[in-house]
């Protein structure tokens, strides 16, 4: 099975996110000083001077903060999916994560709907955390 869509250029900051996904865990970062959680992953806390960052496993639940339905795909690689839904999910822990919403009914998507993570193993190297409505 070959995966023909864009793959992440995984770097030292993002490796725990993608490694976690392979094991069925949605990983996010948390600041030990303030408790705030965030992505994208960086080895610093945005706006906090002295802090330590740790990786935690998120509950995988959240709500749709915003979304769009791509009627035109982002290039030929996504043509087989169109129309498809991209969501910004506000996790229960606070961080926002961007991914796809797995659905057969893009017209019924709305901000505020509750969602949970699902793991889409697209190749031996890559598992993508996606979301579905609950």
């Amino acid at each position: 099975m070959s995966y023909d869509k864009p793959v992440p250029a995984i770097d030292p900051d993002s490796a725990p996110y993608w490694e976690g996904a392979k094991k069925g865990r949605l990983m996010i970062q948390r600041c030990n000083a303030t408790g705030q959680t965030f992505l994208y992953s960086r080895q610093l806390v945005p706006g906090v001077v002295e802090s330590e960052v740790e990786w935690i496993e998120a509950s995988g639940r959240g709500t749709i903060y915003s979304y769009t339905v791509a009627r035109r795909p982002a290039g030929q690689a996504f043509a087989d999916m169109a129309p498809y839904v991209i969501v910004s999910v506000e996790l229960a822990e606070g961080a926002r994560v961007m991914s796809n919403l797995v659905t057969d009914d893009p017209d019924s998507v709305a901000i505020g709907q509750p969602v949970e993570v699902v793991f889409d193993k697209v190749s031996d190297e890559l598992t993508i955390p996606k979301f579905r409505r609950i």
């Binding site: 992440p8 250029a9 915003s66 769009t68 791509a70 991209i86 991914s99 796809n100």
Partner: peptide, 29 residues
Amino acid sequence: ALFSNQWDMVSGLPSPAGAYAMAANRHMH
């Protein structure tokens, strides 16, 4: 799909239109 683009590009967010569409939906909401 470098740095913070890892998430957007893997999700197939059309750029830049899809990003503005997300802001539009949030403003409408």
